[in-house]
Design a protein around this nucleic acid. Sequence first.
DNA 1: GAACCTATATACCGCTCGGTATGAAATGCT
DNA 2: AGCATTTCATACCGAGCGGTATATAGGTTC
Lengths: 203, 203
Amino acid sequence: MKCSAPPAVRGRPREFDPDVALAAALRVFWTRGYEGASMAELTEAMGITKPSLYACFGNKEALFRKALDLYERDKLAYVGAALEAPTARGVAERLLRGALATHCGTSDPHGCLGVISTVACTNEVESIRAHVAARRASSEAALVERFKRASAEGDLPEGIDPAAMASCVTTVLQGLSVKAQDCACRSELEGAVDSFLSIWPSR
Amino acid sequence: MKCSAPPAVRGRPREFDPDVALAAALRVFWTRGYEGASMAELTEAMGITKPSLYACFGNKEALFRKALDLYERDKLAYVGAALEAPTARGVAERLLRGALATHCGTSDPHGCLGVISTVACTNEVESIRAHVAARRASSEAALVERFKRASAEGDLPEGIDPAAMASCVTTVLQGLSVKAQDCACRSELEGAVDSFLSIWPSR
DNA sequence: GAACCTATATACCGCTCGGTATGAAATGCT
DNA sequence: AGCATTTCATACCGAGCGGTATATAGGTTC
């Protein structure tokens, strides 16, 4: 088997890099939401024409799903890393600070693409909502497991229900995403995060 | 001056009740968001035709603003009432429980119309975002003042910044609105609220 | 070079969007 | 009765939407 080196493509070679184009599409979806992003805006940002987009990515929904994959892989990596913090409080702090950095930074659009998609998508694109909801559910389930472990390790006070506490943390995370979209000032959100962490129950 | 009793309207009388129609429009906006609500869906839900809608309410944006007024008057009354609770914790609890009842009930659409409008509105309808943001800002400012008073009264621990704590509470509120839209199960959100209140700093 | 394959560019499709012109129907005023 | 005025119902408007047909340009393989 010698199928490597030059991919040996037949026909005219593609003039754009799909990864670069997908990253550009992600920024548009992140800024406008799924329905707010028009094909015209997408193609312009990606620097390609509509037939090229459809040939390479399928259709708008398939493009969005690929963008969502990229988003979770690149921008939501902090979530997985946060779960490995040694204490429950450390997990919460990494999650909240990571959300602050990701959704309220200077180089990327503000807010969370998942939240935007969940809140904004209506009518026909319910499949996207379901897709995003499923991912979030699995992410929250992992946090619940992590907090159950923390509870067993005596890392959370006995009166605290791990699952409810995980739900509380994700609630704050999603609230931060909403506020990041219109407040624009990171300092206020940092205050909210600091407050939440300051009332975190000590073991 | 005898200008009362019969309004003495000239011309063909209107065949629908604007208040009822506006309430129906509110439900549509609440469910679909501003951009997701089409004029066809609105007119059908309101039981009137498009010319009647435009004659009575102006245009889609004006209709939305009137619906937003109705929403805040009818559905967000608990916010003002919450501020009159005797303690800061009581204020927070009334706000959170009120949000739960309003955004996660059985008779109304789930989620918060303000959050939906902020997150979903893109492009041209930025004026609506600004309008909603201004209202939320004034609401949050009132909460900050209330917490400052609580702090002065020794109702909040000294290490807690009232403004940051207010921001934290509104963050949770908005997070609840997001979760209410896709989780559907109120019990989980009650757990999040209970957790938050259970870690509330005692004076 | 010829055959073949694939990406590009342009123009176009049907559809839905928010918004409106037009004429008929229903009331109060005189 | 007849007129003025306002609402109602139907049909329509231009614009933008997601998606595509067609033809040309740019490559590899033989």
